[in-house]
Structure formats: C-alpha cells, structure tokens
Amino acid sequence: TTMEAVTPIRSSSAFASEGVLTPEEFVAAGDALTRACPTWTWTTGQGARARTYLPREKQYLTTRRVPCARRARDVEAYAGAEEALTGEDEGWIATGAGGRSDGATMEAIPDLGAMTLEADAEDDAEDEYEDEDDDAVVLPTATAIAKEAAGANGERDDENIVKTRTYDVSITYDKYYQTPRVWLNGYDENRLVLKPSKTLEDISADHAQKTVTIDPHPHTGVPSASIHPCKHASVMKKLVNSARAQSGEAPSVDSYMFVFLKFIASVVPTIEYDYTL
C-alpha cells in the first residue's frame, strides 16, 4: 500500500517498550517459532511480491491445513485471556454479557462480503459420470461416512454433520504497524476454498465485528481474512510487560511470536495451530 511504501523501516529495537518489531526481530522471532514448532515454516513467496527488507527465503511464516472443527459461536470458553486487556485497548474486549454472538448477528456483519471467494458445493448436478471399476478398495470420504452414519441414526441435518474446516494460517510483517499480521485462508469440509467472509464464523464475535478485515494477502494477492494489526503493538506491549512482571526479567524477542500467537488464539479460538514452546 502507499502508506506502507512511504513508511520508513524501523531500525531500533522497541518490542519491550512499544510492542513493535524491526524486520530483523521479526525474522529472529519467526526462527524461534519454526525451531520449536515445525508445523510453522518460512515461505519464500512470489519473487515479484518479495519485500526487500526481509531475507528472500524468509518472507512470511505459514502453517497449513490447520483443523477447525467448530464454529466460534459454539465455543464458550474463550473470553478468559482477554480480561487483562482493558483501558486503552478496550476496543479489543467488550466481552462479558454480550460476548457471544448468535447467527443473526454474524450475518449482519457489514460490507466484508464485497469480495467473495465462494466455494460452490453444488456441482453440475445434471452431468452423470461413470464410476470407476475399482474393486471396492476405496474408502468413502469422511464426509460421506459421517452423512451415512447420521442417516442411519435418523438425523437429517446434512449441513451440520461434518464441520471440520481447515485453514492455512500465515504471519506477515506489517511494515506500517511494525508488528506481525495474521492471515487466514480457509477450506470447507470438502477442501473447497472457503469464502473469506465465512471465515468470520471462526473468529470470536467481538473481533469478527471490529478487527477483522478482508484484504489482499501481501504475498499472494488473494483476498484473505486478516486480523487488523492496529492494536497489536499496544496489546503486545501489555503482554510483554505482564510477562516481565511475572518472571522478573525482560522476555527475549525469541518469545515474541509465542506470546503473539497466544493472543491471536483468543481472536480465533477454534483454529488449532501450534504455538507451544
């Protein structure tokens, strides 16, 4: 973006005092993450979109096909970690009585659907293709098995039988906000590309309404759901400081990404990516 283009690159370390990272610290924090959690890997991305202030082979972090078995509104116990984030960061919270959102509220989220990326589950129903002669050694898909089982049990709610979506989660360096930024690209239970606005169902209600945007992914250009980084620095500063208060010493930049991902886990409570040291 233009804003990003005219923003100078941060050169002095300030993760403890301001919660922000230099590109070098982003790489160090990412290295620590990929060492501890091999499900995360550095990605080179497309050459034309590479950022010059990051090493060519360490443009952004990804973890792929992370399961997400339930929708966020079905999960109740994700408010705990957020209580500390009051005061200047109150835009992040607003949990409590109104913390859970029902389906109707989800549907009312404005404007994010302007860009669609919709999987069409209805294939060309009229086309009939001959089945292969494969001597019955092929397992039906998990979806088919589950539907059959549900049918045998007399259930008819087809849509809700298998809800396990998967996500490609990536972390880029946001030069303007000087923090990591998380992007989500989903697939439905049949591994068809998930419309980004449907991703909102996997984000805790308050954040879905306030802090999640659909933007082109900086390294792929594909419209993706992203947790907007405008509050990341102040939240990270708070978390880094509370960690310091607990342990008595300043945390190293190596732990930044783990703390960051733990914080992101409160935003996307049902996507089970790894961030354990």
Binding site: T116, E122, D123, D127, Y129, E130, L192
Partner: peptide, 11 residues
C-alpha cells in the same frame, strides 16, 4: 464421480 467447482467471483 464428477468435477468440482469453485467460484472466485468478485474477488
């Protein structure tokens, strides 16, 4: 047996 379709529409 049959193809899949994904609609990337307006994006």
């Amino acid at each position: 047996m049959g193809p899949r379709t994904v609609d990337l529409g307006a994006s």
